[in-house]
Design a protein around this nucleic acid. Structure first.
Lengths: 390, 390
DNA sequence: CTGTGGGCAACGTGCCGACAA
DNA sequence: TTGTCGGCACGTTGCCCACAG
């Protein structure tokens, strides 16, 4: 049920499957790379995962005892891509090793160069009412079947074969793939309904099929409904969960010890482990009240689109607990009406793309670097404390 | 889904249902009573609930930073009896308010006097293969039906009625109750199989029916299999959960603030919130290596029986992390072979009954009190530090 | 008294082509 | 090209009694 990253062809395929299930907006920092960890964002995920936010006042009070900066520079130690055995929700467990700022070399600050080309074939389909009904099977779009499924022997009458596809847990699912009906079409019949009921799929959910170079098949699932945090984990009070996050990070940063976080891309309101180079790049943005920008996120109409907006405030999201933190340090207004906009009322610098691409700005003259930065945003990236720039 | 204790007849019935589902060995301290909270025991529950005990070394290392005594004197602030929405496993959320030893009056140390007589009717039945098969319904034992179910009109042909019973979540379940067959018997037919599949009942599990004075019916479930901690809570790393428990208790004890714990009687290896009077009584036991005792617990053959044993060691269960703690301070040997005896290799003083009832001991003479105590067990009950007794 | 099994009817599941959007 | 439907066969569900432990 757990896998490491990029060891063999098979692991590559599982790696691709995990990302396909996570959705196009999710990216993970590679092993050994430098990242910034944001406790505030981690807490946001905990809140999103627990049904009751009761005792929030307690947490606020108690958390002030932890000497914890707004963010930690870390190296990714180990990365495990997994899926919830009950819901198939993807998540990543990452080990973080706190790093000294001094030990950072120039190369570490740079973005990784080439993106390796994958030869994995894949298709997604949003399930229709017919696909999920008990009355019949799954209709495979013609192109998808021809591109991604093993070639049928069209001399058979009817042409058919058995497919075996593994899911993220390594469990195998068998499907009868048949080409029949008039007009002819590709269908998955026997085995399909078992899959649907086991994965509790409903119309609107998405299935994903992948085929590796070696012919291995994978199958995964992405749900339409951000289903409620189904009263998870009745064993633990939400206060304990909050404090556990803070205690672990606090201890790790003091002692420089490895700690472990779980990132759930489908539940977390925002990524809270940010590649260091992405963070550094964002520090060079010219961000001030009134600045225009674009940002990509998933909404009810689109599974990932750019939205345009304007910065209306630049200040602390939580001045009491997390003073001088860049986490959601900008309040913004969107050009369009965004449903569930509360999730996007405040954003962090690294989430956005400035409206004028930075590369087209005139090259900075002497002393221009200061001008390009908004004074309210000039902070020591590692200590999170404001510094005057003269 | 949540209920307070003892407000009305209906709440009483839910309270009884919760206890019936928890089993005969579970008891809960009443609201406002004094208790001793044992962090070690709380951690044991967390370990029993989380699949992987990985990172245990981290936790040990990190937990040494918390200045936390082995036990806290607390008052029960609020008590919520709940059940897991997925598994119907019962659990209790209790608020604990740390107390000063000085504020404890003599009455608080005494056990509550009268146990109020309940007029609630109840029956349990362990399900047979026929009860859980899809082929038929549920056969109600005659006595149970006559004592506990609403009276049937035996003039009907056949006599039948509709029963409506609520579970711990307040959800209503409807059953057709019919008296038929030859020889005549009570059966639940229509609605029963829905209940079985919704609650995922298998042969060997137990159903519980309750009927209050007002005629209200309740239905609950107690599973035979201590099913695996079904890979719970993939959102949180087990290290965080450990640290959260310690951080919450540590902060609460320093600041004297209310904190909240969740007690799961079916999963926790031992109760970790102990009535203060029970604790004090155990301090008077004459416990030393070689002492004989009895103790009641659930095992594979019996759902709650007394077992006899002998104390073989009296020392710290975890000398490094929890020195001078009474939690599982005695290593014991049982007269019979106990399956899964690892859970019962070490016990705490308040769990056992001395073989010679304390009331039949000769009344203590002058200075006898010291004699009756074993030196290795004489500790300040609130600080957990050893004291010399001269 | 109650667990199990045979009988049997009703219902759901699931494979098929037809048709139309 | 593909979503939905009617047709139809077969397996399952679920109510009934008989019988035996």
């Amino acid at each position: 049920p757990m896998m490491n990253q990029g060891l063999s062809k098979i692991d590559d395929l599982d790696y691709e499957l995990w990302h396909a299930c996570a959705g196009p907006l999710t990216s993970l920092p590679p092993v050994d790379s430098l990242v910034i960890y944001w406790p505030q964002g981690h807490i946001e995920q905990v809140i999103a995962c627990t049904p009751d936010s009761a005792g929030a006042a307690d947490v606020r009070e108690a958390s002030s005892h932890f000497k914890l900066p707004s963010h930690l520079l870390c190296r990714i130690g180990q990365l495990e891509l997994q899926a919830d055995p009950n819901t198939d929700e993807v998540f990543a467990q990452m080990d973080l090793l706190p790093q000294d700022e001094g030990s950072v070399t120039k190369e570490m600050k740079e973005a990784p160069s080439a993106i390796k080309q994958s030869s994995v074939k894949m298709f997604c389909k949003t399930l229709t009412a017919s696909d999920t009904s008990t009355h019949g099977g799954f209709s495979v779009p013609r192109r998808s079947a021809e591109d991604c499924l093993p070639l049928l022997d069209y001399n058979m009458n009817p042409p058919c074969q058995e497919l075996v596809a593994k899911d993220l847990h390594g469990q195998e699912w068998k499907f009868r793939h048949i080409y029949r009906g008039y007009p002819r079409r590709h269908l998955l019949t026997t085995g399909w309904s078992t899959f649907v009921s086991a994965k509790k799929l409903v119309a609107g959910d998405t299935v994903i099929f992948l085929r590796g170079e070696n012919g291995q098949l994978r199958v995964g699932v992405r749900r339409a409904s951000k289903q409620q945090p189904q009263a998870h984990s009745t064993y633990f009070s939400s206060t304990n969960l909050h404090l556990g996050v803070l205690a672990a990070a606090s201890h790790a940063s003091r002692e420089g010890m490895r700690f472990s976080v779980i990132y759930n891309p489908r539940t977390s309101p925002s990524e809270f482990v940010i590649p260091y180079h992405k963070f550094l790049k964002a520090m060079d943005y010219n961000l001030a009240v009134g600045s225009r920008f674009r940002m990509k996120f998933e909404s009810e109409e689109s599974s990932g689109r750019r939205y345009a907006g304007t910065i209306t405030e630049v200040n602390d999201a939580d001045p009491l607990r997390w003073p001088n933190s860049l986490w959601r340090s900008m309040k913004v207004e969107w050009d369009e009406v965004i449903s569930a906009s509360d999730r996007h009322e405040r954003v962090s610098p690294w989430e956005i793309e400035p409206f004028v691409p930075i590369s087209t700005l005139p090259p900075p003259l002497g002393g221009a670097r200061q001008k390009r930065r908004s004074p309210t945003l000039v902070k020591d990236p590692l200590l999170g404390t404001s510094q005057s720039v003269l």
